[in-house]
Amino acid sequence: MDLRYSKEHEWIAVDGDIATIGVTEYAAGEMGDVVFLELPEDGSDVSQGDPVGTIETVKSVEDLYCPLTGEITEINEGVLDTPELVNQDPLEDGWLFKVKLGNPSELDSLLDAAGYNELIGG
């Protein structure tokens, strides 16, 4: 599946009207060991750019932004109990939450792989 990316270093995988969101490998590496996550509640309505949670390493606390408008349909319970999944497997088991798209045209505002590589100086 083609991934899209946000400038806040999230990857977005779209399947039908559901987008799955996680942290990019680059960001997971830069951040260091993730030790705590706070994710939005199932069923909550979110807008593009909203802070919806936090991602914490030993030393730092970063806001987690929602890259798309819609409704949170599912969060990854596993990553709450095992935050190191974000470092170990950011693209698969380390996914964070799913959004039912409220405004699919927002997908056009996201970066493709080439655009994201440019962002991180790759």
């Binding site: 260091g32 060991d33 030790v35 390493t57 030993v58 030393k59």
Partner: peptide
């Protein structure tokens, strides 16, 4: 250096 391979 704040870290090398990782804090943990």
């Amino acid at each position: 250096p704040v870290q090398y391979q990782g804090v943990l």
